[in-house]
């Protein structure tokens, strides 16, 4: 084991982990409040990445404006999807799974038709590297981490310090009790979908210039996001942060020191974790009611 690599491995883990946090946080909000596993979350992430391509790369819109546009556009689309597709079947677990999966295929196929199937690349808005503490940091990744921290901070403030956040938490904890307190469950589900999809859009627009953009990138994103929320705890925001960072560090250390066997060990770890903590590290156990 080459210990001289450890600073770089930590840097890699942090950068990968924050990417996962960004993608998974929106999924966990939607799941926590609507109780729907939004399998199309990766496709909302993909649409955010296409915003980076079309607004920033092609139209020359300033990058920060592009981020806001992506959050808004994808968030509003998510609210529309909740109102039309998810709300009528929200109480039915299996139909909601089928609808969410169908939506994922629909969005990916439509994107391939509209934008073309080929891979697209986005010029880095923050090129260059920074050498510090024995590791090399990509400037654009550092900026993504900073923006992600700002977004997560804003989300934490919204959920824990505002009236809207209390209402959202109320619906997540007990819909009937929240409803009796005059909170609109439909409204909160709609808002949570807007926030969740907006976060997916933010993840896409931030990570688009770092990676590549194509209509099918949602599949891997949802896979990683599901691992993160299972690790961290279903429906738990702190759990999404912990799970994302944990996955990033496991992958970084594992792939550097162990190579391809990392995925095997990762899933072995997840199996053991679920056996002893079925709700993940910071979540609670979910039981499907028939």
């Amino acid at each position: 084991m080459d210990v001289s690599l450890i600073p770089q491995v930590i840097a890699n883990g942090l950068m990968m982990g924050m990417s996962y946090v960004l993608i998974a946080s929106g999924l966990t909000i939607v799941l926590g409040i609507t109780r729907i596993i939004n399998f199309a979350h990766g496709e909302f992430y993909m649409l955010g990445a296409f915003c980076a391509y079309y607004f920033f790369q092609m139209a020359g819109v300033p990058y920060l404006v592009t981020i806001l546009l992506a959050i808004l556009a994808v968030g509003v689309l998510g609210m529309g999807v909740e109102r039309v597709l998810f709300r009528p079947i929200r109480e039915f677990f299996l139909p909601s799974v089928v609808v969410a999966l169908g939506l994922a295929f629909f969005l990916a196929g439509t994107a391939a038709w509209l934008f073309g199937p080929e891979e697209k690349v986005v010029t880095s808005p923050f090129p260059g590297v920074l050498n510090a503490l024995g590791a090399t940091f990509s400037v654009e990744r550092l900026v993504v981490i900073l923006i992600a921290i700002v977004i997560m901070g804003g989300l934490w403030y919204l959920i824990t310090r505002t009236k809207l956040g209390r209402a959202l938490r109320g619906v997540a904890q007990d819909r009937e009790a929240a409803s009796l307190q005059g909170i609109s469950v439909n409204g909160m589900c709609n808002i949570s979908m807007g926030i969740g999809c907006g976060l997916a859009g933010a993840a896409g627009v931030l990570l688009g210039p770092i990676f590549i953009v194509h209509p099918y990138l949602g599949a891997l994103a949802i896979f990683k996001a599901l691992i993160v929320i299972i690790l961290g705890g279903i429906g738990s925001m702190p759990g999404a942060v912990l799970g994302g960072l944990l996955l990033g560090f496991i992958e970084s250390f594992g792939l550097t020191y162990l190579g391809g066997v990392t995925d095997v060990l990762l899933f072995a770890f997840i199996f053991v974790l679920i056996l002893f903590r079925p709700g993940g590290l910071m979540g609670r156990v979910w039981v499907i009611r028939h």
Partner: peptide
Amino acid sequence: EYFEPGITDFAPLLTR
């Protein structure tokens, strides 16, 4: 080294 199709973050593999 092999990597799985679809991955976009090669930093750990490249570090190695």
